[in-house]
Design a protein around this nucleic acid. Structure first.
Length: 256
DNA sequence: ATGGTGGCGCGGCCA
C-alpha cells in the first residue's frame, strides 16, 4: 500500500501536475492540502477518470484538504470536537481498513502572535481527536502539512530558525504529544540523505539553494510503522515550471 | 534589509 501527501498550493493550478504524478506513482492514497477550492469546483471527474475516488473538504481561496484513493473511503470526518472552525484543514477517512487523518496544520505566522496561539489550540484539539480515534483503529496514519519541522535535522539553518515559526520548542512539543500517542515519523525509520526537505519558500531561490524545511510528514501507528518499507520525498515536481512550494512525500507499506 | 514570490482575485490577505 502506497500512501502519499502533497500540499499542492491550489489544485486548480496544479491539476495537470497532480494527474501526471498519480499516473506515474499510482499511490493507493494521496492526501492533498491547500486545494483552495469549494467542493463544487473540485475536479472530481478528472480524478475519477484517473481511477481515483475523491473526498474533499474545501473552501474558497484558502486551505482545503482532499483525500484521493483507489478504494472507496468511509467514516468521513471534517472537524475535531471543540474546533468550531470554518477553516477546512481536517479530513479523516478509512480506506482499505486504514484510518487516514489528512491535516493541513495552521501555519501560525510568527511565534507569540495571535495566529500562533490559534495554531497551538488547534493542535491540542486535533491531538485529542487522534487520541480518541486511536482506540478504534489499530492501523492509523496521520499525514499532511504539519507546518512543524520535527528536529534541527529538518531545517536548512537551525541557528537562524531557532525558536522561530515551524521550529519553536512549543511547536515541537505539540508534535511530540502526537508522537507520544504511539506514532512514528516514518521518514526517520530509514537512512536518508542529510538536508532532505519537503518545503522551500518561493523567494530568494530557496529551492535551488536547498534552503528548506521538512514539514510534510507521514506518521504511523505501531502496526503500520512495522509494515513500512520505505518513505521518501519526491522532489521532481518541485523542479517543474509553476511548481507547488511543497514536494510530495510517499510511504510504502507491506500488505497485511 | 520588514524586502522578497506565488495564489486568489482585483485590494489585501495568507503562506
Amino acid at each position: 500500500m502506497k500512501i502519499a501527501t502533497w500540499n499542492v498550493n491550489s489544485l486548480k493550478v496544479r491539476l495537470p501536475q497532480v494527474l501526471d504524478w498519480i499516473e506515474t506513482h499510482r499511490p493507493d492514497v494521496l492526501a492533498l492540502q491547500e486545494t483552495k477550492l469549494t467542493d463544487e469546483n473540485f475536479p472530481r471527474d478528472e480524478m475519477l477518470a484517473a481511477g481515483y475516488q475523491v473526498v474533499h473538504s474545501g473552501q474558497k481561496t484558502y486551505n482545503g484538504v482532499a483525500t484521493l484513493s483507489r478504494s472507496p473511503a468511509t467514516d468521513i470526518i471534517t472537524d475535531a470536537p471543540g474546533l468550531d472552525d470554518p477553516q477546512r484543514r481536517i479530513l479523516g477517512t478509512t480506506i482499505d481498513g486504514v484510518r487516514i487523518l489528512n491535516l493541513y496544520v495552521v501555519n501560525g505566522a510568527e511565534v507569540g502572535s495571535e495566529k500562533f496561539a490559534y495554531k497551538m489550540d488547534w493542535l491540542e484539539k486535533v491531538t485529542a481527536l487522534i487520541e480518541r480515534e486511536r482506540r478504534d483503529h489499530e492501523d492509523y496514519i496521520v499525514l499532511g502539512d504539519f507546518n512543524i519541522a520535527p528536529t534541527d535535522e529538518d531545517v536548512y539553518d537551525p541557528e537562524k530558525c531557532q525558536e522561530r515559526i515551524l521550529c519553536s520548542t512549543a511547536e515541537r512539543q505539540a508534535l511530540q504529544r502526537i508522537l507520544d500517542l504511539g506514532f512514528t515519523d516514518t521518514f526517520r525509520l530509514f537512512e536518508q540523505q542529510p538536508a532532505t526537505f519537503s518545503w522551500w519558500d518561493y523567494r530568494h531561490l530557496a529551492f535551488r539553494r536547498n534552503r528548506g524545511y521538512r514539514i510534510d510528514l507521514i506518521l504511523a501507528s505501531p502496526s503500520m510503522a512495522q509494515r513500512c518499507k520505505a518513505t521518501w520525498i519526491d522532489q521532481t515536481p518541485r523542479k517543474l515550471e509553476r511548481p507547488s512550494d511543497h514536494a510530495p512525500v510517499i510511504a510504502e507499506f507491506e500488505d497485511r
